[in-house]
Simulated assay, not measured.
Amino acid sequence: MKELWRQQPFRMYWLGMFLSGLGDQFGWMGLTWFVMKKTGSSAAMGGRRACVHAACCVCGAGGGSFAGPI
């Protein structure tokens, strides 16, 4: 494992993945905060999060059943 971390392309790949995930989380947090500030409703904020998670569940299940046999 140490040999992998000595290779710059491997380190750059994981650094990019980390920064991308961090940016995604800040984006979701910012969008949730935006909805809360605009509407003032925790129900609207929860509804937005529920819609996002429902879409992830549907697409994840569909994608998994599609990619499974491949």
Rank of each mutant, 00 (worst) to 15 (best):
G68A: 15
L4F: 15
A44Q: 07
R11F: 02
A67D: 07
M12F: 09
C51H: 07
F26L: 12
A55G: 03
A44V: 00
K2V: 13
A67S: 14
G62Q: 04
S20D: 07
V58M: 10
Y13T: 13
C56V: 13
M36I: 02
H53E: 15
S42Y: 09
M12Q: 12
M1Q: 13
R49I: 03
F10C: 03
R48S: 00
V58S: 03
R48C: 05
P69S: 12
G27W: 08
S65M: 15
T32E: 04
T32D: 06
A43Y: 04
V52N: 05
F34N: 09
R49E: 01
W5P: 00
G40Y: 01
P9A: 11
S20W: 08
W14S: 03
S65T: 15
S42P: 01
T32W: 02
M29V: 08
I70Q: 08
F66D: 06
E3V: 10
V58A: 13
A43C: 00
S65F: 15
G40V: 02
Q25M: 11
M36A: 13
R48E: 01
G62N: 05
A61C: 14
I70R: 15
A55W: 10
R6M: 11
Q25S: 08
A50V: 07
A44I: 00
S65P: 01
M12V: 11
A55T: 14
A61R: 06
G16A: 09
Q8S: 12
V58R: 02
V58P: 02
A43F: 03
W14C: 02
F34E: 04
M12H: 10
C57T: 12
F10A: 09
W14T: 07
F26S: 06
F66C: 14
M36Q: 06
